[in-house]
Simulated scan of single mutants.
Amino acid sequence: MSDYAKVVVPGTPISKSNFKMVSKEGRFFLPKNTGSYSDRYDVYESTIALLARAQNPGIVFTDALIAVLKVFYKSEKRHPDTNNITKSIFDGIEKSGLIINDAQVTRLVIEEYYDKENPRFELELYKESQFNLDFTVYRRETPIEVKNYEPPANTKGKISNKLPAKKKAVEEDLKDKKRCEVCEKPLKNGNFISGNGGRTLICKDCFAKLR
């Protein structure tokens, strides 16, 4: 029985968080076969499943696994959040039957690269019973160029403008509301005990615990 498998899927990975869940009779599911853009995730998941099975015929992992995921994006500036794509990838791997449940992956390493001509992801799976994972973080002898990140395009200019106003509103709210000396929760009318000439206020829940 194999203790190692590798899956390579071409194209830029799709994040599951980009697709809305649809409610039907109290249940939620990802839309598919709708003829709309929403089908894209279901198609991608099926593509992963087909390639994973074709590249690893006869392999089925049932025990704990170490996973090393290398993602090669087409563009360094525009691509999905790497920490959001693992769900879609492992959903496809689980659908292939290569693994029983994505909870089998107990150790995961994700590495981000760039390949304009051949965007893809490469996933290597190792049986934890047969392999161990070791890594080292060390200071570079020669620092590389700093890579700065900016807020998403649809939030630029909004975050910085909203923060001062929001902070002021919170401060005003805290100033106007009387709070319990013990738990610091806002006090509702009549739901507190006062003492020390009205300078000490304790909610009835905390007062009951102190008695």
Rank of each mutant, 00 (worst) to 15 (best):
A208S: 12
L30Y: 13
P151R: 13
C206K: 11
E76M: 10
L51V: 06
I193K: 15
C203G: 07
K209P: 09
E124A: 11
K209S: 14
A103M: 13
S75D: 13
A103E: 12
I66T: 07
E184W: 06
V109M: 06
T155C: 06
L201A: 13
E172A: 12
L201H: 09
P143G: 09
T12N: 00
R139Y: 14
G26M: 11
T47F: 08
I14M: 01
T106G: 07
I85A: 02
S2R: 12
E181F: 01
L51P: 04
A64M: 09
A103F: 10
S17Y: 09
I144K: 12
D173L: 13
H79L: 02
K16A: 15
A52C: 10
K6Q: 14
C206M: 09
K162G: 15
L50H: 07
S75V: 08
P31W: 03
V22P: 03
K147A: 12
S38P: 00
E76W: 03
F207V: 06
Q130S: 10
N189P: 03
Q55T: 11
A153P: 01
Q130V: 15
A165Y: 07
Y37W: 14
F90Y: 13
G58M: 07
K177P: 03
S17K: 15
V43S: 05
K178V: 14
T106D: 03
L133G: 00
S2N: 11
E145G: 02
N154A: 02
D42C: 08
D91H: 05
D63P: 02
G58N: 08
F192N: 11
K209E: 15
E25H: 10
D42K: 10
Q55S: 07
L65Q: 04
D176M: 10
Y41N: 09
R78I: 12
E150W: 09
P80E: 03
P80Q: 05
G11I: 00
D91I: 00
V7R: 00
L187A: 12
A5D: 04
E111C: 05
S129I: 14
V8K: 02
A165T: 11
E184I: 04
N118V: 01
N161V: 01
L174H: 10
I202V: 15
K32M: 08
I110N: 04
D173N: 15
F61H: 04
V68G: 00
D81T: 06
R78D: 13
V22C: 00
P10T: 02
V68R: 07
K87S: 08
R211T: 06
A208N: 05
K175V: 09
I48G: 11
E150Y: 10
L125G: 00
S46E: 13
T136M: 04
S2L: 07
M21G: 13
V60M: 01
R27W: 02
K87R: 10
R211I: 02
